[in-house]
Every structure is written in C-alpha cells, then in structure tokens.
C-alpha cells in the first residue's frame, strides 16, 4: 500500500471509531425484565429471551430477538408468552418451546413497557407514543396516539384503560374503542405503571411526587412530594402504598396521602417494591436488596453486587434478581426468603 494513503486511512479510521463509539451510546439498552410461573422463569436479557427451569436451574430454551429485548415478558391466561423487542416487534411465543405464534410489527419504536392482558385483549404500550390494543391472535383492534412515549404497563378496571406518558400526561381510554375518556396533565413524567384500586389511581412522578387521581374523571385527589424522582409506580399492599425514590428512600403512605414512615436506604431505587412473605423487598443501585417490615421498623440488607434497577421477581419462595454491571456473569440470582443466595443462572456462551 502506498504510504501516502496511510494517513487518510488512519484519519478515517479514527473518525469512524470515534463516531461509532459515540453512536453506540445510541444503541438502546436497559436492564433485564423477568416473569415466572410455578416452573419456569422467563427473562428478557438483551439479545435473547431465556426460559429457565426453576427446579433444575437449567436453560429450557432461548429465543433470539434481533437487536434486543428488555421488557419483562408477560404470560397470558391462554398460554402465550408475550415479548416486546427493541426491534419494534411484539412476539407471541409458546412458553413450552419458544415457537412463534404471531408477531405484531406495526409499532414504530421500542417496546419498553410490558403489555397488560385483560379480558381477551392485549394493551401494549410503545415508545412511539401509542397504546395498541390487540386481540389474542395479535390482530390490531385499535390504537391511541398519546403525547409522548409510554414506558409503563397500563392498568384497567374493565371499562377504562389507564396509563401515563413521559410527556407528563395521564390518559383514560374506553377499552372497547380506544376513545379518550379523559386526560390530565401532571407536574412530571410518568415512567412506571399506575396502581388502581377502588376508583383511585396512584402514580409515581419523575419530578419527585406520589400522586392520586380519581379514576372516573382524572381529578387530582392528593399529591405528596418525594425527596427525588420516582421511577416506578408504588406497591399497594393492604391499605398502604410503598414507593422508592432516586435519593434512596423507601416511603410508606396511607391511601389518603399521609406519610406513615420513611426508611433511608443506600442508593437510588429504580424498580418497584414487591411484597414477599410479609415483607417489602426492594433493590437499589448500590447493589443491595432490602427486606423491610410492613411497619418500616426492621430492615435487613443483602448485598448482591452490581446495580439492581429492574423489578424483583417473586417466584414461589424465591426472589429473582438480575443485577446490572455485576462482576459475576450471572443472568440472575435466586434468593431465598431469608435473602441467602439459593442459586444463580449463567447462560452458556
């Protein structure tokens, strides 16, 4: 090769590497999403969705999603496993062997939030600002274009379906037609899923608030400030709402919005709390799992390493945790109810 060509080639290579390196920041990524039934755990872990036998701890199958999938898969009552990919495709798989039932490919952006399945209808939120309603064969029933991306799983009371957007709006749509029943503007983006009970909708807001709306008309009933952003929606257990924030606080509120207690934990809390064996369990980006009594008095800490962003997945007596940037190559760790590591799963290369 002529030496005079070396300099331009080197320069081009440097520019390519730099732009390519920067652009990989554009390659979407997230933390793993999980679901489980009595026998298997299903994990969206980037390029593959895995099914892991909870008894033998062996991989039953893996399904390749071109680009990646991170939203927690959803098991339906009629035996489907729904998987939303970052390739804009929603897949229906047979959970037994990962054979494909159908694909829904009309969305224009990623599936970041998991779909809701209710009354033979799939309500699938997409980052293309749309909520898609599908029948159980993947046929589009209706779609509704919101103001911004939808990252959280919707909820429904059978008449209306409710969801929030990154554009700080909350919508209620008629389940049968997708027509807008009401919409309200909030003070902050809604990233997570709402909780619905007795005509009340509870949301965590990204501007740092826990808020309650009347599900009939969207009227604001109360709003309480948190110390930092709320990424996920609250957990409702009994008559109490539990919510984590970016400053590492786990707070408990009454359904009227009274602060019952607050525990300062270590590291930002991204995933929603879960209820396991009478304790509130939550992970933090400091790599800790906290087991907190319902009255907030007792706190046990288990360190799993890495950062715990995704939701914890209860599976029988186990809690499945999938830490990010962990030193271990495990896809997830199974903790027993005492917080001790029961086993972990590392996928074969």
């Amino acid at each position: 090769m002529k030496t005079k060509l070396l300099l331009p080639i080197a320069a081009l290579l440097v520019v390519s590497l730099f732009l390519g390196g920067c652009a990989t920041g554009m390659t979407p990524s997230s933390w793993n999403g999980m679901t489980s039934d009595a026998d298997y755990a299903y994990i969206s872990g980037g390029p593959y969705v895995y099914a892991i036998n909870l008894e033998t701890h062996a991989e039953a199958w893996r399904f390749q999603v071109k680009t990646s999938a991170f939203a927690a898969p959803v098991l339906t009552g009629d035996g489907q496993l729904l998987v939303g990919g970052y390739n804009n495709i929603l897949y229906s798989l047979d959970p037994a062997d990962a054979s494909e039932n159908w694909q829904f490919a009309q969305a224009r952006d990623r599936w970041i939030g998991s779909p809701l399945v209710a009354e033979e209808t799939i309500y699938a939120p997409n980052a293309d600002y749309s909520l898609y309603a599908l029948d159980m064969d993947g046929n589009l029933l209706w779609s509704f274009k919101a103001d911004q991306s939808i990252w959280g799983t919707p909820v429904t009371d059978g008449e209306l379906v409710y969801f929030g957007t990154l554009g700080s709006k909350v919508y209620a749509l008629e389940v049968a037609t997708g027509e807008l029943a009401w919409e309200v503007e909030m003070d902050g983006a809604v990233l997570g899923s709402p909780v619905l009970q007795d005509g009340m909708l509870y949301f965590g807001l990204f501007n740092g608030a826990l808020t309650a709306l009347d599900s009939r008309d969207g009227n604001l009933l109360w709003q309480e400030a948190l110390e930092s952003w709320a990424w996920s929606g609250p957990l409702l257990a009994g008559e109490t709402l539990y919510i984590g924030d970016g400053a590492g606080n786990l707070s408990a509120y009454s359904l009227r919005g009274d602060l019952l207690w607050k525990q300062e934990l270590n590291g930002a809390i991204v995933g929603p709390p879960v209820l396991v064996a009478g304790e509130i369990v939550v992970g933090s980006d400091a790599g800790d799992i906290y087991f907190v009594s319902l009255d907030g008095e007792d706190v046990r800490t288990v360190s799993v390493g890495g950062q715990v962003y995704g939701p914890l997945q209860p599976a029988g007596t186990l809690i499945l945790v999938s830490p990010t940037e962990s030193e271990s190559e495990s896809l997830f760790i199974a903790l027993d109810e005492n917080g001790a590591q029961a086993w972990d799963f590392t996928p074969a290369k």
Partner: peptide, 30 residues
C-alpha cells in the same frame, strides 16, 4: 445530542446524573 435523547431507561438513568439540578432542567429529561 445522543445523551439528551435518552431513548431507553438505561440512557435516561445516565441523563439524570448529567443534568444540573437548577433552572428547571431536571424536569426536562424526557
């Protein structure tokens, strides 16, 4: 530009650490 677009949860989490907590900018991260 890549950072501010924050098109996925992991990217948004990075952005939350990059945005200055004044001038209302922290409310603009989506």
């Amino acid at each position: 530009i890549v950072r501010a677009l924050a098109a996925s949860p992991a990217q948004l989490l990075i952005l939350t650490g990059a945005v200055w907590p004044f001038g209302g900018l922290d409310q603009l991260i989506s």
